[in-house]
Amino acid sequence: MPRRILVNPVVRTLGPFVPVVLLWWLLAELDVFPGAFFVGPDTVVGEFAELMRKGVLPGYLSDSLTRLMYGVGFGLLIGLPLGFAIAMSFWARRLTWPLLLFFQAIADIAWLPIVIVWFGFSLTAVTFVIVYTIVFPLVLGIVAGVEQVPRELIRAARSLGAGRLRVFLEVIVPGALPSLASGIRTGLGYGWRALVAAEIIVGTSGVGFMMFDARRVGDVAEVFLGMIVLGVLWYATDALVLAPFERATVERWGLVRQAEAGK
């Protein structure tokens, strides 16, 4: 019976949060911290209901998700072809690898001052930061994935008469998919955090802006609510979309079975 409860998806998902919420509630009830700086779960739930009733939270969520979709769309459009173009050329890898590592090391938030100068407080500025954050993990993941494709498979395909395009589409792309899936998952995680940072600094709406504006007026409950909303949204996206995609891709191309066989 206990084992059956533990494998229940609802229990496995929500169970780890129960002690955290209880500790949070206990700290608030005992007034360990002043009420002006720390509020309990009941206050945050009340704030959630109020913002939903006024339509404020749905509007901010819609703005944040719209910006994220723009950033992800342009990030994939740039990162996918760029990644494969670099990965397929030895000289392109040699020439661009130092640049990739250099720009990968520059945090997205470091671009915000110059982005504000270029684009002002606009959707373009936020989109630029998200795209920048997504592209480099994606490109690095593709390059790593292509390098992991066994050369024997490529030579075998060519010996059977496959042309360069067919080898690329039927051997190299499928072989790189596991690393590509991991790169997309990592890039979107970075992009989500970049969105929040950009909204806090350059945004005029969105969940990040809501939290920053609440901090300005001293509404701690709204700040807590914003953090919870961000965590829940990303957890749901990762658990329902990105993790299954990555897992299915890895299992489809046999890397899990190979790893298990090698143990």
Results as ranks from 00 to 15, higher is better:
residue 25 W to D: 14
residue 52 M to G: 06
residue 31 D to L: 09
residue 49 A to I: 01
residue 36 A to C: 03
residue 44 V to L: 12
residue 27 L to R: 10
residue 60 Y to M: 07
residue 30 L to G: 03
residue 52 M to A: 12
residue 26 L to D: 05
residue 26 L to G: 11
residue 43 T to W: 11
residue 31 D to M: 06
residue 29 E to Y: 14
residue 28 A to K: 07
residue 46 G to K: 08
residue 49 A to K: 02
residue 49 A to S: 10
residue 61 L to P: 02
residue 47 E to R: 02
residue 41 P to F: 06
residue 50 E to F: 05
residue 38 F to S: 11
residue 60 Y to F: 09
residue 39 V to K: 15
residue 35 G to F: 06
residue 29 E to T: 08
residue 39 V to I: 09
residue 45 V to M: 06
residue 28 A to N: 13
residue 55 G to H: 06
residue 47 E to D: 08
residue 48 F to P: 10
residue 64 S to T: 02
residue 47 E to C: 00
residue 36 A to K: 10
residue 55 G to P: 04
residue 48 F to G: 08
residue 58 P to Q: 02
residue 26 L to P: 10
residue 25 W to K: 09
residue 26 L to E: 05
residue 33 F to N: 10
residue 33 F to Q: 04
residue 52 M to Y: 11
residue 39 V to D: 08
residue 55 G to N: 07
residue 44 V to I: 11
residue 47 E to K: 01
residue 27 L to N: 14
residue 32 V to I: 11
residue 65 L to W: 13
residue 46 G to W: 10
residue 53 R to G: 11
residue 62 S to F: 12
residue 62 S to G: 13
residue 54 K to G: 04
residue 43 T to P: 15
residue 33 F to V: 03
residue 49 A to R: 08
residue 66 T to G: 10
residue 60 Y to C: 02
residue 43 T to I: 05
residue 51 L to D: 01
residue 39 V to A: 10
residue 44 V to Y: 13
residue 48 F to W: 11
residue 58 P to L: 00
residue 31 D to R: 14
residue 37 F to H: 05
residue 48 F to Q: 05
residue 28 A to I: 06
residue 31 D to Q: 08
residue 43 T to G: 15
residue 46 G to E: 12
residue 52 M to N: 11
residue 34 P to C: 10
residue 58 P to M: 02
residue 47 E to M: 03
residue 51 L to N: 00
residue 51 L to Y: 00
residue 35 G to R: 09
residue 27 L to M: 14
residue 40 G to K: 10
residue 45 V to G: 04
residue 49 A to G: 15
residue 42 D to M: 11
residue 47 E to W: 00
residue 46 G to I: 02
residue 26 L to I: 05
residue 47 E to P: 01
residue 35 G to W: 02
residue 63 D to S: 08
residue 38 F to Q: 12
residue 62 S to C: 05
residue 56 V to C: 04
residue 56 V to R: 03
residue 58 P to C: 01
residue 34 P to N: 09
residue 61 L to D: 01
residue 25 W to E: 07
residue 35 G to L: 00
residue 47 E to I: 00
residue 63 D to V: 00
residue 31 D to C: 04
residue 51 L to R: 03
residue 38 F to Y: 15
residue 26 L to A: 15
residue 29 E to S: 14
residue 32 V to W: 15
residue 37 F to D: 03
residue 58 P to R: 00
residue 56 V to N: 01
residue 43 T to E: 15
residue 26 L to S: 14
residue 29 E to M: 11
residue 36 A to P: 09
residue 44 V to H: 15
residue 27 L to H: 13
residue 29 E to K: 13
residue 25 W to R: 09
residue 51 L to C: 01
residue 31 D to N: 13
residue 36 A to D: 12
residue 55 G to S: 06
residue 38 F to V: 06
residue 65 L to E: 10
residue 31 D to E: 13
residue 61 L to M: 04
residue 42 D to Y: 12
residue 50 E to K: 13
residue 39 V to R: 15
residue 34 P to Y: 08
residue 42 D to P: 03
residue 57 L to I: 02
residue 43 T to Q: 15
residue 39 V to C: 09
residue 51 L to Q: 05
residue 52 M to C: 13
residue 33 F to S: 09
residue 58 P to I: 01
residue 63 D to W: 03
residue 25 W to N: 06
residue 45 V to W: 13
residue 25 W to V: 01
residue 61 L to F: 01
residue 58 P to N: 03
residue 34 P to A: 12
